[in-house]
């Protein structure tokens, strides 16, 4: 019997095999930016549900606020004004964790169990195991995780794993006024996306499409975009992939490190066998304590 409510797919820095018999439903959140009005209900409900409050900021001449993701702002709206064929478009995108199938954060994290990928697709950060090294920040192709200066832990969207674990949708999805956010099985989300894309193409958006980038094995947060050919208009990377540094770490550095550590182990044993235990004189010990 597993100790957790969601089955584990992967754990950071852990090679213990995960239970593989159960095959829970793969879930996804679909963000239809074409029906998003940028009201920030998702932002607010995210903070309310997760008991986080970012500091009250400033206006810097845009609608965006909080201006960026932070340990206390796990999702923010990003607004872009784009002129296309003489018509203005106000492209508004909800930014937050993409819950990649191949998560760069999990792969790069050196702290066991600090990042867990569940079989349903959710990638969750467990701050009690986080050492604050910040490798996940480099590992993420979407620039999502944020390191807290207060507690030295990294935070991001959990896709409301606590809600999903008891059979509820994430808080942001439930609250979305226009239905721009949807949640369900990944397959269902792809079907809904296809309907939306057909509707948009009828309305003159020839390049409408789904953003589910294969470079990270697909994501469990997907976008319907009017201009899927140009995700950069929305501030999304064209072809996101895990940083080569992470690949290097996993591919080459890790076996090397294991070999090095094994070598150190053998050398220590050899040293012990040949020289005996290292003893500290009582005097030195006392000196230290007095100091």
């Amino acid at each position: 019997m597993a100790l957790q409510s969601l089955d584990i797919e992967r754990r950071s820095a852990t090679t213990t095999p995960v239970p593989g018999v159960r095959t829970p439903l793969e879930v996804a959140k679909l963000i239809d930016v074409t029906t998003c009005i940028g009201c920030k209900a998702c932002q607010v409900s995210c903070s309310e549900w997760n008991d986080i409050r970012a500091p009250v900021g400033s206006n810097i001449g845009v609608y965006d606020n909080p201006i960026d993701l932070s340990p206390q702002a796990w999702t923010v709206m990003r607004y872009a004004e784009v002129e296309e064929g003489g018509r203005l478009q106000w492209l508004i995108r909800k930014d937050g964790c993409m819950h990649c199938a191949d998560p760069g954060c999990v792969l790069s994290c050196p702290a066991p169990d600090a990042i867990v990928q569940f079989k349903n697709g959710i990638v969750d950060f467990h701050q009690e195991h986080c050492t604050g090294c910040g490798y996940c920040l480099t590992g993420c192709p979407f620039n999502i995780p944020r390191l807290s200066e207060e507690d030295g832990k990294v935070y991001k969207c959990s896709l409301c794993s606590d809600r999903v674990a008891v059979g509820q949708e994430p808080s942001c999805v439930k609250t979305c006024p226009t239905g721009a956010l949807r949640f369900g099985s990944k397959e269902d989300m792809q079907v809904i996306a296809a309907e939306r894309i057909a509707n948009l193409q009828q309305r003159g958006f020839a390049n409408a499409g789904l953003y589910d980038p294969p470079g990270v094995g697909g994501t469990h947060v997907m976008y319907v975009l009017h201009h899927a050919d140009r995700p950069e208009l929305y501030g999304l990377p064209q072809d996101p992939a895990i940083s080569p540094l992470v690949e290097l770490w996993k591919g080459l550095a890790k076996p090397l490190a294991i070999a090095t550590m094994a070598l150190v182990g053998f050398a220590s044993l050899f040293h012990y066998v040949t020289k005996g235990p290292n003893a500290v004189s009582k005097e030195i010990e006392k000196e230290e304590e007095a100091a």
Partner: peptide, 24 residues
């Protein structure tokens, strides 16, 4: 410990539980 853990050789299985549902 952390070096060993870093290479995937954690000595004990840490729990990977989600946050408890707060409205139960």
């Amino acid at each position: 410990y952390s070096s060993l853990a870093a290479v995937g050789m954690a000595p004990i299985a840490a729990q990977a539980e989600v946050r408890q549902f707060k409205l139960t």
